[in-house]
Each structure stands twice: as structure tokens, then as C-alpha cells.
Design a protein around this nucleic acid. Sequence first.
DNA 1: CATGAATGAGGCTTCATTCAT
DNA 2: CATGAATGAAGCCTCATTCAT
Lengths: 205, 205, 205, 205
Amino acid sequence: MHDVPTKQVDAKAERALRRRAEILRAAVQLFQEDGYHSTTTHAVADRAGISVGLIYQYFGNKEDLLRAAIVDILGEFRDRIPVAMDEAGDDPEARLRSGFRTLVAVIDEKPEATVLSYRESMTLSREGRDELKKLEVETAEPFRRAIEDGIRSGAFRAVDADLVVHNLLLVAHGWALKHWRLSTWLDLDTYVQRELDLVLGAIRP
Amino acid sequence: MHDVPTKQVDAKAERALRRRAEILRAAVQLFQEDGYHSTTTHAVADRAGISVGLIYQYFGNKEDLLRAAIVDILGEFRDRIPVAMDEAGDDPEARLRSGFRTLVAVIDEKPEATVLSYRESMTLSREGRDELKKLEVETAEPFRRAIEDGIRSGAFRAVDADLVVHNLLLVAHGWALKHWRLSTWLDLDTYVQRELDLVLGAIRP
Amino acid sequence: MHDVPTKQVDAKAERALRRRAEILRAAVQLFQEDGYHSTTTHAVADRAGISVGLIYQYFGNKEDLLRAAIVDILGEFRDRIPVAMDEAGDDPEARLRSGFRTLVAVIDEKPEATVLSYRESMTLSREGRDELKKLEVETAEPFRRAIEDGIRSGAFRAVDADLVVHNLLLVAHGWALKHWRLSTWLDLDTYVQRELDLVLGAIRP
Amino acid sequence: MHDVPTKQVDAKAERALRRRAEILRAAVQLFQEDGYHSTTTHAVADRAGISVGLIYQYFGNKEDLLRAAIVDILGEFRDRIPVAMDEAGDDPEARLRSGFRTLVAVIDEKPEATVLSYRESMTLSREGRDELKKLEVETAEPFRRAIEDGIRSGAFRAVDADLVVHNLLLVAHGWALKHWRLSTWLDLDTYVQRELDLVLGAIRP
DNA sequence: CATGAATGAGGCTTCATTCAT
DNA sequence: CATGAATGAAGCCTCATTCAT
């Protein structure tokens, strides 16, 4: 109704974003700990330190919370990987190494979300799943390009680029999916190192 | 209280086993189609053509049904892979190829169960999860041995055998997990062929 | 699965019908006492002496219960009125008197449901409302025919038959709608008698 | 604590009244469209172009809004009908015609509120309902007096005056309650005309 | 063995109302 | 005056599980 100082609007908007993030963080934690279906909306509210009702002012429903959680991490993949690859310069192999290292690092930061996207993605509605697939394809794209560049330049053999990307992503996700086993004998850096050696060893001429 | 002819007992026992299998099949189908949590026991009963009550004569509860479904497939891995490897003779690479081909083939036969074991394993109780992990380790074992044999014989480089097995299993599971994408450009045999080329290419001296 | 003696099937079907009727009766009572929206499904279950869950084996949801309640009484109108009119013979006025008397009598038996159909009908979905309108038109039909017969035979003036029926129904419903006021100075028979005198007095030549 | 110019007080008071009326109008619209229970206070605020909180500065709670809406229209009946009857002079029949015509006209102006008073009156608390009954009786009173005057003067038969009033009110309300059916073959004036002919035909000597 | 009617705890979600700004 | 973020009680409904037949 009234004109309100811009600063106030910004403050409100920022506050709203912070709230949204708080709720999402609580949800991701609990989804990871107990699974999506065993997590109640009340539990999310409690963990976030708010009331149940408030969840529904930031998210349409529980599934929305799940989708937001998964989209959140996949979005981070999509955004951070190209940056990391560009910082590595033009060499295809260097780009691949940097991108993969970043991918696994992000997964290691939020393993919950990665596991979630495997475990609960089919819980989502058709639209939600399609959104995920789109993000997944977008994440794969920079890797695919680096490999094809490498093939063109002769740095790599004429392998099936899509398949190599598929493997790279699987192996990266594997760090989260099978962490219970891997972490008994490897740390993050060693895992990245050895996997890169294997993958690159397979595609170098 | 009565003595019962043995033949009748056998007939009964067999009938019971068939029933159990029917229920399990219905459950696996529905778990795959709709997810474990969205599948109701009534739906399982309907699909199996029996009444709800009967489910509880063959399985303790719904989670039991899930565990049985997953154990079923993992057990098949454990049993069929050593056989396939033995049929391939003594050469480590041949054994690896045969074992991997069989692994992917079994997964292709019942992709549902594979996906299930990723998606719902955390739904299980502590005991159920431990049982799965045990089966997973047992499945990995023959692969690990073949690789170590190959390393010893000089057929393979001195790679981290456990890591290579980890990758082999991930890639095999990947056929089920990412079937929606892979099947757009590959068939089963090509997938097995190309993956073997990549993996073996990485570990050959 | 098995063939079952017909008698048993009948017994079950009958039992089911009784249950349905019990639940419906409890619901109508409570809807009348407290209004549809103030009546909880738990309250209905308690009144019916069953558990909440059972309601949902006989009715799809709460609205379904409301629709069933209203359809129930409107159906009774539709069925009992033609019978009463036929018992009255051929004379249009006698038929009208008998039909109206029956209408008010049925309303007096279950005033709740009549009030419900006024108060809550718009709570229903489009389909539910259409079903009600159809029943209402069917209830009106025999009255309309009697009046038109009377007009043709010269027993009644050339009045707007539809309007007279509209009035008859309103007045009959009025017995339930304004019972709190009417019952302070009239009983059922007197109400019927006097209203018939008024209505017939208005349409006689 | 400050003395405030009277003009300002008036301006404020008027502004407040306007706000109240705006809110009430929004509420009546929505109550009619969706029913009282399906209308949320947020929806009322939106429709009125204000915030939820403001509603509670003009009305104690949601039920208050309903009562105000119904009292509003019933008060209009009470006020306008005697005026219309007085303008018609002394003849009982003329007074009755004028009163009824006005009653139906007011109902036609705000059919929502009439329907509301049937549909939701039981939603009100004891006090609210009693207030409605009082208003209803007050509305009926001038009609009753006209009929008794007519009976005394010999213009009408010795009918049950209260019952005739009951019918008049029912028939008037019927215009709103059954508008969906009536409006398919009648307009307002015809309805008034024909109903008056029927009712007066029934009570003329 | 087999049935399926019955149970009831518990989950998701809505929405009237408040209060700090 | 006015806002709208926040609350939390309460309702509808589902569904795993039992048990009398």
C-alpha cells in the first residue's frame, strides 16, 4: 500500500532468503540422517528452530523441500565446475583434472545431497525429475567438451566421450555413495588422484 | 498331532515357496514402479492376487519384504559371478571380462532390484543394512582376486585393486541407475564392451 | 480366490450395508447438531462406535459423507411421493394433498437432512451439486404433473404449475427450516392442513 | 492526550467506517462465492486490498465478520419494508403488495446475504443466532400487522396470519435460494406478481 | 491356509490469530 | 494505523498390521 524505503525492502528480502536457506539446511540434514520419508515436517521445523507453518510460506509442500535440496547441490555442480575448469587453462587434461577435483570436492562438502539425489529423486513428481535430469546433463556438458577437445587435439584416444563422462560422474558420486567403505582406506585427495590416474590412463593414446 | 505322509509335506512346502516367490515378485515390481514408501501392502497383495493378511504369513512385515527383495538380487550376484569367472578359465583378464559381463547381465535382468538397493537400503534397520554390506563385499571378492592375480602375474599394473573393483561395480550399477540416459545411445553389449576396454586399458601395463 | 457359499456373500454384503448406514446416521446427526464443518471425522467415528479408518472404507472422504447424507433423503422424497400420490387415486387435488402430506412427513422424520441440503449443498463439488439438483427436479415432477392434470380437468385455475410446485416445496422445507418458530404454535398435521388450504385455495377456480 | 480538531476526528471516523464497509463487502462477496468456511481471512484481506492484521482492528474475529454480514442485510429488511408499506397507504392488500415487492427487491440486490443467513447462521454463536432471530421477527412484524388489519376489515379471510407471513418470507427467500432454477423461466417482476396473486388469492374471502 | 474388515497412530497441511516493526 | 511474518492447534486422511471367521 505504501512506498517503503528500498533499504527496508532489501532487508526483508534478505531475511526471507536467509530463512529459506535455514529451513533447507535443516531439511537436507534430516533427509540425510533419516531419509526423506522418515523425516517429518515437524522435525524439520524443530531442527530449523521455527514452527511447522512457516515451512509452508517458503515451500509449497514437503516434496518441494526435497526438490529444492537436490536442485541446490546440482546447481552448485553446474556453476562451480566450469569456473574450476577455466582456471585450469586450455589443456584438456588439466581441465578434466580440475573439473573432477572440484566435482568430488563439492560432493564431499555436501555428501548428503548427492546421496539424496540418488535415493529420493524418484520420489519427485515428473516435473521435478525432469528438472534434475536437465541439471545433470548441464553438469556433464563441460566434461564432455574437454574430452572432445582432447580427442581433436590428439591428447586423448578416440573414445566414447559420453561414456567417459558417465564414468567420471559415477565415480565422483561413488565418493558419497560408498563413503562408508572407501573412507576406510582412502582420503579425498588420494581418491581423486588415483581415479584420475585410472580414467586418464584409459583414454590417453 | 497327526503323522503326515512326507509327499504331502513336500507339496505343501513347495506350494509355500511358490507363494513366497509370487509375493516377492509383486513387491519388487511395485517397489520399482512406485518406490518402497509409495507401495502399500494392499497393492502388493492385489498384484500378487492374494489378500493382505497372507503377506504376513510369509514375511514379518513390510521392511522384511524390502530386505528379501534386495537380498534376492545381491545373492544372485554372489552366486553367478564366480561361476561365470570359472568358466572363463585362468587368465585374469578373461575372468574379469566374464565376471563383469555377467554382473551387468544380471543387473539388466532385474534393474529394479539394483536401483532398489541404492534407493531404499537406508530404509532398512541396522541389521538389514549390515546384511547388504556383507553381500556387497562378497560380490566384490572374486573381482578383487582376479585383479590381484593379474598384478602378480604381471598382466596388470600395480593398481589399487579395491579401487578398481569399486569402479567396476559402480559402472555395472550405472547401467541400471542411469539407464534412462545410456539406453538412448547404447545397448547392453556395447556398454559392456566399451567399459571393459576403458577399465582394462587403464590397468594394463 | 475361492468359491464361497452364496449365503455367506449375502451376509457380508448385508453387514457392509448396515455399517454404511450406521456411519451415515451418525454423520447426519452430527452434521445437524454441529454443522458439517464443525463435525470432525473422529466425532463421526465415535458416534458410530467405530474407528476413523473404517469411515474411509465406506466413503471416499468427508464430503462424500455429506453428499450421501443429502442424496439419501432426497432419494426418499423421490421414491415415496409417487407411491403416496398413487394411493390417493386419480383426483388431482387428492393426489396433491397426499403427496404434500408425505413430503412434509418425510421431512419431519429427518429434518436434519433437509436443513443440511439447504445449508451445506454448496459445500459439495460441482458434481455433487448437480446430482442434488437432478434429484430435486425429480421430486418436483409428480407434483407438477398433478397440477397440470388438474388444470386440464378444470379442477384448478390456469396457474403457473412450476411456480406452485416451487411454493409447495419451499413450504414443505419450511417445516424443517423454521421449525424453531413454527413448532411454538403448530403441530405437523395442522401445518399440513393449513398450508394445503392456503395453497389449494389459491389455485382452485 | 492531545486535543484534536473535531474535523480531523470526523475525517478519521469516516475513514474508519469506509474501511469497515470495504472489508465487509469483500467478506460478503467471498462468503457467497466460496462459502464461509472456505473463505480465508487472507482472502478477505486480499480482496479488500489490505493486510490480514487490519481486519482484526475492525472485527473481533472471523465469526464477527459473518454476523456483521448477515445483520447488515436483515437490518435493511427491517428498515426498508415499513417505509415501503407506509408509502402504499392504508389498504392492507396494497401494503402487503408493496412490502413483499420491496422484500424481494432487497433480496435480489444482495442475494448472497440472504443465502448466507440460511447457510451459515448456525455457524454463529448462541448470541449471534438470537440476534438473527430477533431481526427476523422484526422483519415479519409489519406483514403480520397488515394481514390482521385486513382480517379485521374483512378484506381477508380469517387465516392464520403468522402462517401467511411465514409463507411470504419463505417465498421471498426462495427467490435467492432457488434462483438457479427460477431464473430460467421468470424475471423478478413476474415472480413478485405471480406470487402475490397466489398468496392473495388464497386469503381473499 | 486364507480372508478382509477393522484399527488407530501419526503424517501433512491449513488457517485464524497475534505482535513486533 | 497498517503490515505480514510467525505461530501452533487441529483436521483429514493413509496405511501397516491384527484377528475373528
